[in-house]
Nucleic acid binder design. Structure first.
Ligand SMILES: Cc1cc2nc3c(=O)[nH]c(=O)nc-3n(C[C@H](O)[C@H](O)[C@H](O)COP(=O)(O)OP(=O)(O)OC[C@H]3O[C@@H](n4cnc5c(N)ncnc54)[C@H](O)[C@@H]3O)c2cc1C
Length: 545
DNA sequence: TGCTTCTTGTC
DNA sequence: ACAAGAAGC
């Protein structure tokens, strides 16, 4: 058993778990509760055999005090949940009375992982969209920069608010920030009320038979599907009452540093997220299984940045996917919806791991990898970042990332494999670059993805599973459309040679206007040699235990 | 949600 | 010569 299995026991979900238990009544394996807090009922709940249990569980998802609109002013602190629909914190505040929506850019929130440039630009655009939606409903967003505790306390004094509602944080730095916020506000007589985060499951409640956190995806997935009833999403509010006094707002941040093609690739904000979901379920779900590994086409939902910024509720997505899986007459749509749910489950798994093992963003889940002798070569790292490795599929992916802030999942795996295995660079260096450039940068998903490819994660692929960047290119981009789009200097190379131009006959390259080493680099490493070297290194690591 | 090499069976 | 499958990394 590896160290990952030493669960981090501090629960952020205490009350929710108890409720969960009260509803379903079957939890064994007491997990001690140290810390607060989802203060309000967690939205997920155990799927009982009896329908009544499920119904009750779903009713439990509603804010408890939603009897009538009250008179108590509250602040809603938006962090990475930039939406109005199915936003439990917002719903609870509206039920209590007038609302001050607040967003603060506070470096303390992010600790070691300050937002990267692409995510910052996305957030700026998303905040602007959120501010407009709030205005349409009669409310105004207060935007501030600096210490969130000071701003929230000042606004509370100004508007006589007694509570700050927010989604419970899972990322360790954000959770620590939220704890300090809770304490600071308590000193002012203001309660921080934490609500269910944007997840389907509750990490403290969905444990293995042995009462431990899950570390293997398939049993986790089975448990998620069979034991958790996804809560019905809350509707978006039609009107939002505001207090008499309007707190000052700074001008919203500018979307500086946005990837150049960001606006062509995505529409930021809740409306854009809903449009992407609509498109997925109406047009893409039936071909999802066939096309989701083909990077040249839009075969996946591209919802990841919307989810990363909380512009759409994962419960809403799961509900729609379940409906298609249950009701569609088209078997391809049924399979597509199931496959999509499985992807959402990977996201759940990533958050499960991050919650239970908060050091995972910087340390391998398999402890033997702490001793691994990664190489550090600034030169190859820079070539990789710039998309100049000489492997066309890899370079295409890294350039898609630079241009749009997003990269297709299949290509993420291949570029990560090349960096960590062929080039033997630390997976964390790759994760930092993704963090800087992805609009969907997500600490849980990014960490899981990198550790999975590098082989040091929970349920990761074994070390000897090394992607061949040429085979992957031939298999998933057979006509080279993806490479041509993102590596224009190879656009005229025939499909037969585009995946590995260095083996092309010279006259073919010349006809395509390619001079290897000048217009496009020769491969940084010989994959066959690099693969053998990496496997040998990992084998040595294993036998030195 | 791999890849490579080696073996066997077919023509 | 090559497809299909097994085994090992
Ligand atoms: C090295 C590496 C790094 C990654 N970094 C991130 C990251 O920072 N942020 C991020 O959101 N995803 C990350 N992923 C996961 C995955 O590549 C993206 O979620 C996916 O490509 C998003 O595209 P989509 O929305 O069209 O996905 P779809 O196929 O439409 O899937 C729907 C949703 O499921 C979730 N999902 C899908 N695949 C995964 C997965 N493998 N792991 C976790 N969740 C998943 C995402 O939220 C996604 O939006 C990473 C993967 C790898 C291999």
């Amino acid at each position: 058993m590896c160290a990952i299995l030493q669960p981090h026991r501090s629960s952020k979900f205490g009350r929710g778990r108890e409720r969960h238990r009260a509803v379903a009544g079957t939890r064994r394996g007491a997990v001690r509760r140290r810390d607060p807090p989802v203060d309000e009922a967690f939205l997920g709940s155990r799927r009982g055999a009896a329908r009544s249990i499920r119904l009750r569980a779903r009713l439990g998802a509603r804010p408890r005090r939603a009897v009538s609109v009250g008179a108590m002013t509250s602040i809603v602190l938006f962090t990475n949940d930039l939406r109005l629909a199915d936003n439990p914190a917002l719903a609870a505040a509206i039920a209590a009375g007038p609302v001050v929506p607040l967003a603060v850019d506070d470096p303390r929130e992010h600790g070691a992982w300050p937002l990267g440039s692409a995510a910052r630009a996305w957030r700026a655009l998303s905040l602007a969209s959120l501010a407009r939606s709030l205005e349409e409903r009669g409310a105004w967003l207060a935007y501030r920069a600096g210490d969130a505790a000071e701003h929230a306390a000042a606004i509370a004094r100004e508007t006589d608010a007694r509570a700050v509602h927010a989604a419970a944080a899972i990322e360790p730095d954000r959770a620590a920030w939220q704890r300090r916020l809770r304490e600071a506000l308590a000193r002012e007589g203001v309660a921080l009320v934490a609500h269910a985060p944007n997840l389907l499951h509750e990490p403290e409640a969905l444990l293995t038979q042995a009462g431990r956190p899950h570390t293997v995806f398939t049993p986790f997935f089975r448990a998620l599907v069979s034991r958790v009833a996804f809560a019905a999403p809350l509707p978006a509010p039609a009107r939002i009452a505001v207090p008499a006094k309007r707190p000052a707002s700074m001008p919203l941040p500018e979307p500086a540093g946005a990837p150049p093609a960001l606006l062509d690739a995505f529409a930021q904000g809740e409306a854009g997220a809903l449009a992407a979901a609509d498109r997925f379920f109406s047009e893409l779900v039936a071909t999802y299984e066939d096309l989701r590994d083909v990077p040249s086409v839009e075969g996946t939902s591209r919802l990841s940045p919307h989810l990363a910024h909380g512009e759409i509720s994962v419960r809403e997505l799961a509900r729609r996917a379940e409906r298609v899986a249950r009701e569609s007459a088209d078997p391809r749509a049924v399979f597509g919806a199931q496959a999509f749910l499985r992807q959402l489950a990977w996201r759940e798994f990533a958050y499960h791991l991050l919650h239970h093992v908060p050091h995972t963003p910087s340390r391998p889940l398999k402890p033997e990898f702490e001793r691994f002798w990664w190489e550090r070569d600034e030169h190859v790292l820079r070539a990789w970042r710039q998309g100049l490795t000489g492997y066309p599929l890899v370079d295409a992916g890294l350039r898609e990332l630079a241009a749009t802030g997003w990269m297709h999942n299949r290509v993420r795996m291949v570029v990560a494999s090349l960096l960590t295995k062929d080039l033997m660079q630390p997976w964390a260096d790759g994760a930092v670059w993704f963090w800087e450039r992805l609009v969907d940068a997500d600490l849980a998903n990014n960490t899981l993805g990198w550790q999975w490819v590098a082989g040091c994660g929970a349920d990761a692929q074994p070390f000897f599973r090394v992607f061949n960047p040429v085979t992957q290119s031939r298999r998933f981009d057979p006509d080279g459309a993806y490479v041509r789009r993102w590596v224009p200097e190879l656009a005229r190379v025939p499909s037969r040679w585009i995946h590995a131009p260095w083996v092309a006959p010279p006259h073919e390259l010349e006809a395509a206007g390619v001079r290897l080493g000048e217009t496009y680099p020769l491969p940084l490493v010989d994959h066959a040699v690099a693969r053998a070297r990496a496997i040998e290194a990992f084998r040595a690591l294993r036998s030195s235990m």
